[in-house]
Structure formats: structure tokens, C-alpha cells
Design a protein around this nucleic acid. Structure first.
Length: 268
DNA sequence: CTTTCAGCCTGACGGC
DNA sequence: TGCCGTCAGGCTGAAA
């Protein structure tokens, strides 16, 4: 599932082919996504130049001369650059054809994603916390925000108001590296441990982006499998298997309706 | 205010 | 073989 590293990888792969190009056609084959695709978006986008593509949290923002398109990949979405003559696959819901011949296809089996247009901002972006890979994201911030909070630390760091872009995979991995149990109350973690945790979060995200980038050369050919899936995951998806550190079996619990794997011996 | 939880959706997988 | 139930999960908004 796309987490922040995959969204960032997608941005870097797509931007050089799209920015400064003109939209020839925006075809919506199935506009029934997380929110209905903006009515009339094809007419709104047609002929416009793409001024820039940026990312905020897991949202991609395609800035046009007038208005912005906001794309989210949801749980199962992907954006691929393909030859416009390539046959459309099942679940290819939207395609953006550029006048330079490039074709960007939005593919999303579960349709949890989004593709919206607005010229007055998006409310989804209004209450987001800092980007994890900036200096705004500090252990001090986590410590202060968490005081008197009884919520478990894992859902706390996955809350977009705390910090954006930390999904289930990287929350699990960072907590393992930090030696913190995912079900520990957020308010009962010291400043020192929060400072260490922010370093681990930045490291796992950065390393995943680096590895995601290794598949970028294949992007245009449609081999969209992101490289970071190959990275060694120490706890995520490994419930019952031995801990890489102490070999005791990893425990799998549910926190906030999400599976959470951890080592009861190494994480406290 | 904080916290929990249903719902959105399809594909993969296990049991029978 | 195929049918059925369960699980996966980001995000929102309503309920507690």
C-alpha cells in the first residue's frame, strides 16, 4: 500500500514528464472514488499547463495555471506513465494525456483514493501536522503533544495531526527500532525516547525513499512495483516469526483496527 | 476536549 | 471447482 515513500517516489518519477507540459485530455472512466471526482474536471483541466507537482502528506498536488488537482492513492492506487496506445487495464479509472504524447494512468482497485480539482484550496490539508522529514518534526513536539494522552503511541504517531505520512508499516518499524511497545500510552514516553523515535522515523522513511528510487528507471515502461517492498521489514507482517534481535516470537495485536506486530522482549 | 469505530472497496486467501 | 467469510488499510465523520 502506498505510504509516504511510495508517494514521494511516484512524484519524482512522474514530475519530469508532466511539469511544463500541456494537458490534451483528462479522461475519467470511473469517477467513483473516496470522494466523487470533481464534476467537469475534464473541461477544467483541458489545455492547461502543469505549473508544478508537489506533495503534502500523502497527497499529490498538480498545480495548473488555474486551480490545482489533488490526487491521493488511497490503499491500492498507483500512477503510471504509459504509452497512450497501451491497452487500458481493469481499474485504470483516470488517464491524463499530455500534448507531448505522455499518458498518466491512475489505477486503483479499491477506489479509496481521490482525484479532485479546486481553485480555492482543499479542506483535507487544513489540519495536517508537520512533514516528517523536516526540522518541524521533533521529539520535543511529540513529547509536548502527548502529555496526558492515554492513547497508545502507535495510533498517536499515525495521526495526521501529530505528524503526516507515518503509516502502519513505518510506525511499526520505527517503534521496533526505538524499543517502544506500540501499545504503550503516548503520555508515558519520555522526551529522550521521543527524540530517538523521531530519528528512527526519519531514517526508515528516508531509506525507503532511497530504495523506492531504485525502480524509477523502469517507471515509464510500466513496471510500477516499488523497490521499497524489498527492503527488510523487521516486524511488519512478521507476527509469530522470530525477532531479528532476540529470536523470541513476535506478537501480533490490534490497535485502532490495525495489526501491530512487535517484540514483547525488545520493546518496552 | 479525547477516543473509538463504522464505512468506503476489491482482491487474496483459507476452509469446506 | 467454487462459494463464503475474513482480512488488509488511510481517512473522515459521527458517536460515545
Amino acid at each position: 500500500m502506498p505510504e509516504l515513500p511510495e508517494v514521494e517516489t511516484t512524484l519524482r518519477g512522474v514530475a519530469p514528464h508532466i511539469v511544463d507540459q500541456f494537458i490534451d485530455q483528462l479522461r475519467v472512466h470511473n469517477g467513483s472514488l473516496r470522494w466523487p471526482v470533481t464534476r467537469g474536471i475534464s473541461e477544467l483541466a483541458k489545455g492547461q499547463r502543469v505549473v508544478a507537482i508537489t506533495r503534502r502528506a500523502k497527497y499529490l498536488l498538480v498545480e495548473l495555471e488555474r486551480g490545482t488537482m489533488m490526487i491521493h492513492l488511497g490503499m491500492s492506487g498507483s500512477l503510471r506513465l504509459v504509452d497512450r496506445a497501451a491497452p487500458r487495464r481493469k481499474h485504470d479509472h483516470i488517464e491524463m494525456l499530455m500534448t507531448n504524447g505522455v499518458c498518466l494512468r491512475y489505477h486503483d482497485p479499491r477506489r479509496f483514493g481521490a482525484w479532485l480539482w479546486s481553485d480555492s484550496g482543499f479542506p483535507q490539508l487544513d489540519h495536517l501536522g508537520p512533514e516528517p522529514l523536516t526540522d518541524e518534526f521533533t521529539g520535543k513536539r511529540l513529547f509536548e503533544l502527548s502529555r496526558k494522552r492515554k492513547m497508545a503511541i502507535k495510533p498517536f504517531i499515525m495521526d495526521n495531526r501529530t505528524v503526516v505520512g507515518v503509516g502502519n508499516i513505518y510506525a511499526s518499524e520505527a517503534l521496533f527500532r526505538g524499543g517502544i511497545r506500540p501499545d504503550r500510552a503516548a503520555g508515558r514516553v519520555s522526551l529522550k525516547r521521543y527524540e530517538q523515535l523521531t530519528v528512527h522515523i526519519k531514517e526508515v522513511l528516508t531509506s525507503a525513499i532511497t530504495q523506492g528510487g531504485t525502480t524509477l528507471r523502469d517507471f515509464v515502461n510500466g513496471n510500477g512495483e516499488p523497490g521499497y517492498f524489498q527492503q527488510t521489514l523487521m516486524v511488519y507482517g512478521r507476527g509469530g516469526q522470530p525477532c531479528v534481535t532476540c529470536a523470541k516470537p513476535l506478537k501480533d495485536i490490534r490497535l485502532g483496527q490495525r495489526s501491530s506486530v512487535f517484540c514483547p522482549a525488545c520493546q518496552r
